[in-house]
Amino acid sequence: MNHSPEALSRQQRMLLALRAGTISLNLALCATCAADDLPTPAPGERAAVDSTFDRSITRILRLGDIGRYEEALVLCDSLHEALPDHPGPYLSTAGVYVNWMQSHRLSQFQEEVDLNAQRAIDTGTELLASSDDPWLSFYVGSAYGYRALARLRRHNWIGAFLDGRRSNEHLNTALKRDPRLYDAYFALGGYHYWRTARSDFLRTVAFWMRDRRDLGLRQMQLAVDHGRYIRNGALHGLALARYDAGDWEGALAANQLLMDTIEPPTNGSLYLRGRLFAQRQDWPAVERTFKQLLTKLTVRPRGYQSVGYQVECMYWIAAALKNQGRIDASRQLAA
């Protein structure tokens, strides 16, 4: 091997050129995905209608919001029978199961989520080979999003990151084909916010990743203001992100809007509300909120209950009692 000064200088020049090229590529990639300018729809304008599934999607989402998951799944089954080669029914089924698991902190439906998300990806990809329907891109992008979440739960960080990128590509394609598909901004906003807020490992590997939490918050707000189907989910997602960012009042405002929209309130909105009241040290409200949530959690059969979730509710109730000076009641609950 030649170790002459001339050879070393050539190697150094090659290395510097490679580094410069890598930096230029990273900057180009950032510039490509840095479309931070968002549309400004007119007040009251809603996203485009999915003419194929409009009424069904609206009904399924409503049933999921109020905890009637079994009924929502029956409706999904009827869609499967009518359109077995379309990604919409598979994505709807996966969404119901994800909602059920997140609302009750369960894991037993993950296989159903994985199966239906993959079928949505497969059927949607096949149809996209001969169609430029923006809703197909939306469905496939959303399915990749569900798969990314599943991989996060399994600590498959790289797989989750790659699926998140695939989800973004399809959702951005949907927006290029129909700029009024504002529902897509919820998933994009969640990706941009939580990728930065919860990806220390990825930023160590992919050190060029920018902090795009502000963009994520603005995208979720756009979905709240102008989404047609995803508004309730976007409200909860926005409240969670603002809570994570330390914006307690912004989180409470979004949470209140959701509480005013869905009756009975969702488990997730009650839990976040209780935590927000704890931040305010409004202990009577903390007690009241977690008691309401605990009652909801114990209504379902034992096979669909999370003991850990119930224990956490009792912890917050005990803490609220203690901070109100009701020490004996707090000890009795903790015993």
Rank of each mutant, 00 (worst) to 15 (best):
R300I: 10
R218Q: 15
A47V: 01
R19E: 03
S306P: 03
V299I: 15
D260G: 10
L16H: 15
N172H: 07
Y229C: 11
P43N: 01
S142N: 02
Q108E: 05
A7E: 12
A20M: 14
D214H: 09
N172R: 08
F277H: 05
L202H: 02
H80E: 11
L73C: 06
L181M: 15
A334F: 14
S103F: 06
R326H: 09
P84L: 04
A174M: 01
E112V: 13
A174I: 01
V307A: 11
L115E: 09
R273Y: 02
G67R: 10
A318C: 11
D132Y: 15
L293A: 07
R180Y: 01
E249C: 01
A129T: 07
L25A: 14
A94T: 09
R13W: 07
E70N: 12
W208K: 00
A7Y: 10
Y139V: 09
M314H: 11
I317W: 06
E249M: 05
S130C: 04
P264F: 05
C76P: 10
R326Q: 09
L188C: 08
S92Q: 14
R180I: 00
N323C: 03
A7M: 10
A319H: 01
N168G: 14
R275C: 01
L115C: 08
L128E: 04
G44S: 05
E169I: 13
I327D: 08
N26L: 09
